[in-house]
Amino acid sequence: MDLKLDHYTKDGIEVVDVEGEIDVYTAPRLRELLIELVKVGHYQLVVNMEKVEFLDSTGLGVLVGGLKRVRAHDGSLDLVCTQERILKIFRITGLTKVFGIHDTVDAAITARKAQK
């Protein structure tokens, strides 16, 4: 399955819905979207990965790059993911300590608001 991307604003936070496979072929599209969102002033991002079927290190690189960009504006990039096979790659690379990873979009937004 290819990559589907959508985004919307909820409680002042931009939520990015990602569906499909994030790999060396599709990751550039996610990177472009994250860059565009930051460019137009969205610095609080939640990336919903509940419908991601595959994620490799290229995708991780794009997420880290997005985090770097929002942090340059004192922003945040949190993830929503409960799939073990996706979480595993975050654990292997130690990125569970870098990203806030939540069970639902609402939980991610609530946690982010609580930190403000």
Binding site: D56, S57, T58, L60, G61, K88, I89, I92, T93
Partner: peptide, 10 residues
């Protein structure tokens, strides 16, 4: 070479 790191960990 993050990909190699993932392979080694996996």
């Amino acid at each position: 070479e993050l990909g190699l790191a993932v392979i080694a960990g996996l």
